[in-house]
């Protein structure tokens, strides 16, 4: 069932590539994040070359826009580049570019001093970029000392019931609920023995909640996370059916990132994200 959808998604990605890389929508100029995900989804060598050429001397892959330096694509690019000097430079950049921290406050009580990773260089850490960086380091540099910090962030910021909101767990005394998309992303990072209690709570959230948040990106990440945790069997067919219906109805709003994640989930490329001990 997943095979035909995967083929359609792969066609969609390939037919919309701008040059060597992939843009945020079909036929738009290439950017690092959609390119990295499409490379992972398709094992695409031309896209990998684009990433190598786009890598900065410090190892990062960024979307620089004026003074705003979004360096969050570096983690996905590190995965997409595969083993080698380019991946090493990207991993080294991640190790040395943790997010800034803030003091705990009444409004936002924090449970620890950990940093995590940010979307934009010089800002606070959030669940999605932290999860991606942890995953990248676990795949590319498994003994990195930065991993302890990233895993601590995910443990400290999990919601009361498990899983993750975008990054905070409590604001002004109100507990925030977990989102499917960020919970699935966190689970990509916490495969295996990294933080088993945190992962178990998040898995429980994901398994009971994915059907309530049936956007393409959430569905695709849910399936990827469930595959990586060996829990996909009871869910796979229904998730694929929902993804297929969404693709028919909305074309995933032309979002290359959602399309690539769905291609990863519905083919066998999710195995490239598997952390082995």
């Amino acid at each position: 069932m997943a095979g035909p959808l995967h083929a359609r998604l792969a066609d969609r990605l390939l037919s919309g590539r701008g040059d060597q890389g992939f843009g945020p929508r079909p036929n738009t100029p290439a950017e690092p994040e959609p390119t990295a995900l499409a490379v992972i989804a398709l094992d695409d060598e031309a896209g990998r070359t684009w990433l190598r050429n786009a890598q900065r001397p410090d190892g990062s892959l960024t979307l620089p826009r004026g003074v705003v330096m979004n360096d969050s694509p570096t983690s996905l690019a590190a995965i997409a580049l595969g083993p080698g000097p380019a991946q090493d430079r990207a991993a080294q950049y991640l190790e040395h570019h943790l997010a800034i921290t803030t003091a705990s406050s009444t409004a936002i009580p924090l449970r620890g001093p950990s940093h995590g990773w940010a979307w934009v260089d010089g800002t606070f850490g959030w669940v999605e970029p932290t999860s991606r960086a942890v995953l990248a380091l676990r795949l590319a540099r498994r003994t990195s000392p930065a991993l302890d910090d990233g895993i601590a962030v995910l443990t400290e910021r999990q919601c009361e019931q498990g899983g993750w909101n975008y990054g905070n767990r409590t604001v002004w005394g109100t507990d925030l609920e977990p989102y499917v998309q960020t919970t699935a992303m966190g689970l990509l990072a916490l495969q295996g023995p990294a933080a088993p209690d945190t992962a178990a709570a998040a898995l429980s959230v994901l398994e009971r909640q994915w059907e309530q948040e049936p956007g393409a990106l959430s569905l695709a990440l849910s399936l990827t996370a469930l595959e990586l945790h060996g829990r996909a069997d009871p869910h796979r067919d229904r998730i694929v059916a929902r993804l297929s219906a969404e693709f028919d109805e909305t074309s995933f709003f032309d979002d290359t990132v959602a399309t690539a994640w769905a291609a990863i989930a519905t083919g066998d490329r999710w195995e490239q994200l598997q952390v082995t001990s």
Partner: peptide, 28 residues
């Protein structure tokens, strides 16, 4: 980040379909 989820679940997608007007995700 999952714009499609919010647009679909909120009912905006169906409301816009009924008046045949396009939606664009400004994030992309």
């Amino acid at each position: 980040r999952d714009t499609a989820y919010v647009v679909r679940q909120s009912g905006l997608w169906d409301a816009l379909k009924a008046v045949e007007v396009p939606f664009t995700d400004l994030n992309t």
